[in-house]
Amino acid sequence: MPSNQNKLAGQGTLASGILLLAIVMMSGLTLATAQEGAPGITQRTLFATFDPKAPACNPPPGLTKSLAYVQENERDFLQGVDHGLAMAAKDRGLEYHRVLVENDAAKAVEQIQSLLAAKVGALVATSPDPAALSKTLQKVIWSGAFVGTIVPPPATLLLNAPQYETGKVLTDAAIAHINAKLGGKAKVVLLTQDTMEFLAPRFEAMRDGLNQLPGVTIVADIAPKPVTKEGGLATMKTVLLANPDIDVVLGGDAVVLGALQALRADGKDRADQFLGGIDGEAEAVSEIKKGDSPYKASISLSSPVFGYAMGQFGADWLEGKSIPQAMDILPIALTNSNLAQYEADLADPAAVYADPVRRDSYLKMYGNICYDTRDQYVNFPWSSEQK
């Protein structure tokens, strides 16, 4: 966003420097405004636990009371984010806008630029190409707006799952099945997202766990493109040409559901297979409920719940309140014993957010930031994990 400082920068004279100082002093600009354009926190930092009682600061001036969501595609996980954000916006009296960019990073950048020009107050964005969005998201942060992202920086509130732990929870369930139902032997397909460095630890956990079993062979370790059901279907069709008998498939729910479709199309699905995913998508939950489906587990990262929390913190930011800099989305292994409560939480994330015990089973919050300290935004791949 242009400022008096930006307009005067580069003139290279003592007079311009004196004039700039006078403008800053006379206008009463805060330190945060004077630091507009700061790179944020770029080195790995461990944040303290979020303090909800931290002092408030100034609300950002000149921005609209609005919340926008730039959504990369329509997979269930991201639709859940939309559901939570929309509910939070309604509850807090914010205008809500969703923009679907269909895996097009250039379109996402264009839409974010439009929202910046419209003085959006709060923005949440996802993209298959985080690096392409980075500079534009920084400009939104410099404008004073709230920016929330899911896994990659930059953001005033960055969400991440403890990725290694997420992968380990799923892998442990698969290993238990292999030992109990498959005699300790299995041919495994990993449908990865290793091309996104921020998600790579979950697949490291899968390899670490499975490689400890001498009877297990990983016959395919591949990243589908795009990361959708269709991408998983196409990739699994290719895998089955060389390896028609597969016992275990692990990955994100969307791609593993595509793999299940490919297995069924070829008549290669079996009740004793273990297909497991991450995200807790509705179709995966439906498969688990059947009991005789190859789909045995999904690790929930309850997107409506954290979407609602992001919307609430966006509204808090616009009121000048202190919010977390980072938030863990805690992995939960879905079973028949907890599916009913889980589905109730998906439908009504506001009730989860209002109940500290239920909320803390899904989310853990770190650090503090507000408009006045927005130069401390997260601009590194934050994780609460040391691995």
Rank of each mutant, 00 (worst) to 15 (best):
P304V: 01
S300W: 05
R270G: 05
S286M: 15
G252Y: 14
G251C: 04
D316M: 11
L241T: 14
A284V: 09
F313G: 10
V285L: 15
A284C: 09
D292Y: 06
G252W: 13
K268G: 08
V305P: 00
S302V: 11
L275N: 03
G252F: 14
A297F: 12
G280W: 06
K321L: 10
F313I: 04
L275K: 02
K289P: 06
I299H: 00
Y295L: 06
K290F: 11
G291D: 09
W317R: 06
V255W: 04
V255H: 05
V255I: 14
I278S: 09
G252C: 10
E281P: 00
E283I: 07
P244Y: 12
R270F: 05
A259F: 04
L275R: 03
Y308M: 06
D272T: 14
G276R: 02
Q261Y: 12
G277S: 08
L260F: 02
G252K: 06
L275C: 04
S293I: 07
A282E: 12
L301D: 01
F313M: 13
A282K: 13
K321H: 10
F274Q: 08
K290T: 12
S293N: 08
D272I: 02
E319M: 09
V255Y: 04
Q312F: 11
K321E: 08
F306C: 00
V256P: 10
G280V: 11
F313A: 13
P304C: 00
G320V: 02
E281M: 13
R270V: 06
A259S: 12
D279S: 13
D245N: 15
F306W: 15
A282W: 08
S300F: 09
G291N: 09
D247K: 08
R264W: 08
S302H: 08
G311Y: 01
D279N: 13
K289D: 12
S303D: 03
I278W: 10
L241S: 15
E281D: 15
R270Y: 05
I299E: 01
G258Y: 05
D279Q: 10
D272M: 07
V248N: 04
D247E: 11
I246F: 05
K268Q: 13
A284L: 12
D272E: 14
G280E: 06
V305M: 00
L301G: 01
E281T: 14
G311C: 03
I288M: 15
V256E: 09
D292Q: 12
R264E: 15
D245H: 14
D292A: 12
Q261F: 11
G307V: 04
V285P: 00
Q273Y: 09
Y308R: 04
G267H: 07
E281R: 11
P244S: 12
D245Y: 10
G311N: 08
A259M: 05
P304S: 01
R264A: 10
G314L: 02
I246R: 07
E319Y: 03
A282V: 14
I299F: 00
P294W: 02
G251N: 07
Q312N: 13
G267L: 07
Q273D: 10
V285M: 15
W317A: 07
S302A: 14
A315F: 03
G251I: 05
S302Q: 12
L260Y: 02
I288C: 00
S286R: 15
L257Q: 13
V305F: 00
D245S: 14
L250P: 00
L241N: 15
K289G: 09
L275W: 03
D279V: 04
D253L: 11
L260M: 11
D292W: 01
L318P: 01
P294D: 11
